[in-house]
Computed example of a mutant assay.
Amino acid sequence: MTGAVALLVSLSAVPAPLHAAESTAAPDYRQSTSARRCADRTAISFPVRSITDSENVLLDDGREYNIGILTAGLDDEAARSALQDLVGGRSISIFSPQKGEPIGVDRYGRLRGDAMVPATRGKERFSLQESLVARGLARVTFDRPLVCSLQALLKAEEEARRRKLGHWASGLFSVLDANDAAAVAAHIGQFAIVEGQLRRTSKSRKGLYLNFGRNWRSDVTIFVPARLLNPRQTKSQRGGRRPGGLTAPPFSKKAGNTISNLGLKLRALPRLRARGWLDHRAGPMIEIHNLEQIEKLH
């Protein structure tokens, strides 16, 4: 990974903090953005039989529902208690990823997707995911089925972090210094949110590398696969087989391969925040699967 590249990159702007009144109570999300954005999606109501753990709910028909956000662990008693308080003995409406599509199911057979819960008073609903994140008991992972609530969840997480609610106060949740590779390396194999000053970038046929140090062999790196840099590539251009059995190059090195939502030139080397599962590849690395996993900080 040598040399910076002149490449335009699409990075999500950091969500603006909510201007809620200062208190220890979590915000009320009955009038949530998620509820409005899910209005045109297919939804099915399921009575809740019991709470399996801090991230899974057993439904009355015997199927399991996974909430799609990360708590401090399946044995997180605070999150489990909050989940019990929010949905215990009630019904939840699970929404499909897109209009007209069925409810999402993961590889374990668990239902996935945004969930709305009937409010205690009146007919208004609130988002299960937003409620847990707003209490500081869960983090946003950019799970694809949660299409209604991603931006609302980021705002709720930012506010909970700013106000040090829940696990943000206890230290179970934290933002790691991406410029301190040794500290980040202690969390290999875990989900992490890292933040720091970008030091250099490099590009290969596989994708783009965003490095938070001068030495790529040991620094913290965010890897953006080529398929995200050039989403309009055909299957063969992403490395599939062409007629005759020839393998197409997965990523052209031409400067035209860009993603330019913000038109940010990486030579400006901004401060970034990124989230995902930490792996060890030379140094600590997060491979992203959704561009919104990277936020540009102001």
Rank of each mutant, 00 (worst) to 15 (best):
A119G: 15
F126R: 07
E130T: 08
E130M: 08
S131I: 03
A134H: 04
R135C: 07
G136Q: 04
G136H: 05
G136M: 03
L137P: 09
F142A: 06
D143C: 10
C148R: 00
S149G: 12
L153Y: 01
L154S: 01
A156I: 00
A156W: 02
A156T: 03
E159T: 10
R161F: 06
R163L: 14
L165R: 15
H167L: 15
A169E: 12
A169F: 14
S170R: 12
F173G: 12
F173D: 08
D177C: 12
A178I: 06
A178D: 04
A178V: 09
A181T: 09
A183M: 08
A183W: 05
V184R: 11
V184T: 09
A186M: 06
I188E: 02
F191R: 10
I193P: 00
V194Q: 09
Q197G: 10
K203L: 14
S204I: 04
G207E: 06
L208D: 04
Y209K: 10
F212R: 07
N215H: 12
W216K: 04
W216R: 06
W216M: 01
I222T: 02
I222M: 03
F223C: 08
V224W: 02
A226K: 05
R227G: 03
R227P: 00
P231L: 02
Q233C: 08
T234K: 13
K235W: 03
Q237T: 06
R238T: 10
